[in-house]
Each structure stands twice: as C-alpha cells, then as structure tokens.
C-alpha cells in the first residue's frame, strides 16, 4: 500500500487516492481511510467552514475547529492554516475531474 510510505512532515492534512473507491486523509498523526461519499462529505464540511463568515467566527472564537470525518469515526483538529490548506487540497483533488 503506497499510503504507508507517506511521511507527513509539514503538519498539514493531505488527500491520497488508494484504490478505485478508497481514499485516505493523511493527518499529522494518523491516516484515515475514506470512501467516496465520505470524501464528498469532507469536502462539503470544509467548504462550509471556509466561507468568509465562517472563518471570521472561528477566528473570533476558539481559533480552531474540531471536525468529524469518515461517518463520525474520527475527530480531527484543524487550525486555520491547516483548514485553508486542506480546502485547497480537496479542491485540487476534485478539479482533476474537470481538467482531464
């Protein structure tokens, strides 16, 4: 499994495609397997959290978010820079479909 070789050194969250309908969210401390519907749900949540008003309210409050992923099997912790990077990562992942 290629996913085992991933060393996450930069404290960010990454998406990896493993097999036909298996994906992985690589976090600083664990690897979370995701199905495609779970990927779509993650995308929806991240997009909702990164609107201008949502970001403002995060900054005004705790300055981080806790997020359930993979049908609530995992809880992840994201600070603003991580959140924004993951948003780009997911956008790029779904962008492939259009560019090809």
């Amino acid at each position: 499994m290629p996913v085992k070789n991933v060393v996450n050194t930069n404290n960010s969250y990454q998406i990896q495609h493993i097999t036909f309908c298996k994906y992985a969210l690589i976090t600083p401390n664990k690897i979370i397997n995701l199905s495609f519907p779970q990927m779509l749900e993650l995308r929806r949540k991240i997009n909702a959290l990164t609107t201008y008003s949502a970001l403002n309210s995060i900054i005004d409050n705790e300055n981080f978010v806790l997020l359930f992923v993979a049908d609530k099997q995992h809880l992840i912790f994201l600070e603003i820079p991580q959140l924004l990077k993951l948003k780009d990562e997911i956008a790029a992942f779904f962008q492939e479909a259009v560019l090809a």
Binding site: H17, F20, C21, F36, L40, R43, N47, F93, F94, E96, A97, V98, A100
Partner: peptide
Amino acid sequence: MNTIVRKQMSINTDVMD
C-alpha cells in the same frame, strides 16, 4: 472527465453544489 473522480461521479462537483 476520465480521471479518478469521474469514475465515482458523472457530474461536476461545483455544478453539484
């Protein structure tokens, strides 16, 4: 549209939103 995501989903994600 013939990459990874295309195999799972036949419509565009932004259009889906």
